[in-house]
């Protein structure tokens, strides 16, 4: 029984414990943000950003990230950035029923590939699969986990080229208009919108990045 029930499929209380453990780990290995000298791997990340575009306004940046974080942690974003290898579903972000797995490329496995059900647009109807072109999870080698991340950790992760798919400032700025990102604002029937409009999000995203991509303080 349940020999292949993924370990992700755990009760809420257990799940929280697991997240807590992960948070502790991520704090220990965390790196500092753009624009701040770091003894760790800042060199790599810093050079990816043309200095001229960085305004280094930590207060404006951190404030903007509050909005960014609210969007990224909304079900429309977090559901495809899970901690485990199974996406989440619905406004309560429950583990996707029937347990589709990420696969190497993030597009699923065997007969359980994302696009087998998720079309290039939302399928009409209650609980019908939402959809957008190229529907997928981050690939296995760049999981870009949102689920359970603190604002501090997520900010650092987003700009870490080792964790963000080698995206530099330009690519990060462009990513606000990525098709899958935009699809968050076209929720399927029964799913809520992110907490602000896409233009408001994009403005916050840009402000955050262009002011130095500062991470909010640890809490």
């Amino acid at each position: 029984m349940n020999n292949n029930r993924p370990s992700h499929y755990i009760s809420p209380s257990k799940k929280n414990k697991k997240i807590a453990v992960l948070l502790v780990l991520s704090v220990i290995i965390s790196v500092t943000a753009f624009g701040i000298n770091s003894r760790y791997n800042a060199q790599n990340t810093y050079t990816a950003i043309p200095k001229s575009t960085v305004k280094k306004d930590s207060i404006a940046s951190v404030k903007a990230f509050e909005k960014v974080y609210a969007v990224l942690m909304s079900p429309r974003c977090v559901n495809c950035h899970p901690i485990g290898d199974i996406p989440l579903q619905g406004d309560d972000s429950h583990v996707h029923k029937m347990f589709p797995k990420r696969g190497e490329d993030g597009k699923g496995l065997y007969a359980m590939k994302c696009a087998n059900c998720h079309q290039s647009e939302n399928t009409k109807g209650e609980h019908a699969p939402p959809g957008a072109e190229n529907w997928h999870l981050p690939p296995a080698n760049m999981k870009m986990v949102f689920e359970g991340r603190s604002a501090h950790d997520l900010a650092k992760q987003l700009i870490d080229t080792k964790q963000n798919g080698n995206k530099d400032m330009k690519k990060l700025l462009e990513h606000a208009d990525d098709g899958l990102v935009l699809s968050g604002w076209k929720p399927a029937q029964g799913n809520s919108l992110p907490p602000m409009s896409h233009s408001e999000f994009k403005k916050a995203w840009t402000t955050w990045l262009e002011n130095g991509a500062y991470a909010p303080a640890k809490k």
Binding site: S7, S11, S13
Partner: peptide, 10 residues
């Protein structure tokens, strides 16, 4: 008992 909590049928 499952490692992750709950019961499994062996």
């Amino acid at each position: 008992k499952k490692r992750t909590g709950g019961i499994k049928i062996d």
